[in-house]
């Protein structure tokens, strides 16, 4: 099994360097497994669709897109990676459900000669060192993105502004990074953090949790939500409390459902990390690796601050 992967890799590498026409005539298209998180999540669904489109446009690879049942189905994702190893794919592009638990199976893939590109959430560097691997990460800087969004709120409220954070799933890496980014913005803008709680990424829970925060802290002026779905619930709670326009919300993700709220000015900023392109970028990186180039470190992808037209 190693040999065929090795030969394919050599052939592809050689083709790039020496004789492209000859190589493509002799070898099959490389197969890339795309391991996603929950496809029930709009964000990953978009990302996957973008990747499929991107692969079709390139036309020089076969893409195997795979997803798991829920965000936390780590076992399921490990099984997917193992299946891809058995299938002897040429490369794996993975958005890990956990930044440490997936390292062992990924190290096995690397040992089996499979090229691996890490997208979305970054593998834990210390764990990678322990397994003697260095996987390239292609992805956005969630912390920097959240800070961009948080800075908009800090500017709008001014120093001393009283804010709360609605966190994502405790333990989810992007959630943790976004919270850190918001904390950076709070520290820099000298804001006053009243409370910080999880609503598990969900609209209804964010609505409940924020309503209760509002009761406990009547003087909340701003909210930093770790994703747009939770921002939707927060905005409804603000409206229900009759505080529309008095409490400002910043958020992350830029999903379609948030657009009307941006128009109204109820949400003053969100961040687009161009999720649809992320997997495509990962595929490009994987093709480069298959072609023999060795990538390491963090290839940061584009982040764009989206603000309300008025602010």
């Amino acid at each position: 099994m190693d040999r065929r992967t090795f030969l394919t890799g050599c052939a592809a590498g050689g083709a790039l360097a020496l004789a492209p026409g000859l190589a493509s005539a002799q070898t099959k298209k490389p197969v890339i497994g795309l391991v996603m998180k929950s496809l029930a999540n709009e964000f990953f669904k978009d990302m996957q669709e973008g990747a499929v489109k991107h692969a079709q446009e390139r036309g020089d690879l076969t893409l195997l897109p795979l997803g798991i049942q829920s965000e936390t189905d780590i076992d399921g994702q490990i099984a997917l990676v193992e299946n891809l190893i058995t299938k002897k794919v040429d490369a794996i592009v993975i958005a890990p459900a956990d930044s440490r638990a997936l390292i062992a199976p990924i190290a096995r893939a690397v040992k089996a000669g499979i090229k691996v590109v890490n997208i979305d959430v970054r593998f834990d560097p210390a764990s990678m060192r322990k397994h003697h691997i260095d996987i390239v990460f292609v992805g956005p800087d969630n912390r920097a993105g959240a800070k961009m969004s948080g800075d908009v709120l800090a500017k709008a409220l001014g120093a001393g502004g009283k804010v709360v954070i609605i966190e994502g799933n405790p333990g989810a890496e992007n959630g943790v990074q976004r919270k850190l980014g918001y904390m950076d913005a709070i520290a820099q803008g000298k804001l006053d953090l009243l409370d910080s709680r999880t609503a598990h990424w969900e609209t209804e829970e964010a609505n409940t949790v924020f309503s209760n925060m509002l009761t406990a802290h009547q003087d909340i002026q701003g909210v930093m939500a770790a994703n747009d779905s939770m921002a939707l619930g927060v905005v409804k709670a603000i409206e229900a409390a009759g505080r529309k326009g008095k409490i400002k919300v910043v958020s992350f993700d830029n999903i379609p459902a948030i657009q009307p709220l941006l128009q109204d000015g109820e949400v003053i900023a969100t961040v687009d990390q161009f999720g649809a392109q992320l997997a495509g970028d990962g595929i490009d990186a994987a093709m480069q690796e298959i072609a023999g180039k060795s990538l390491t470190g963090w290839t940061k992808t584009e982040l764009k601050l989206v603000t309300a037209p008025g602010s």
Partner: peptide, 15 residues
């Protein structure tokens, strides 16, 4: 009731 309260409907609600 959920929809009127949150003004959205998404397929992962109610987990």
């Amino acid at each position: 009731v959920y929809m009127t309260r949150l003004t959205i409907a998404n397929p992962i609600l109610g987990i």
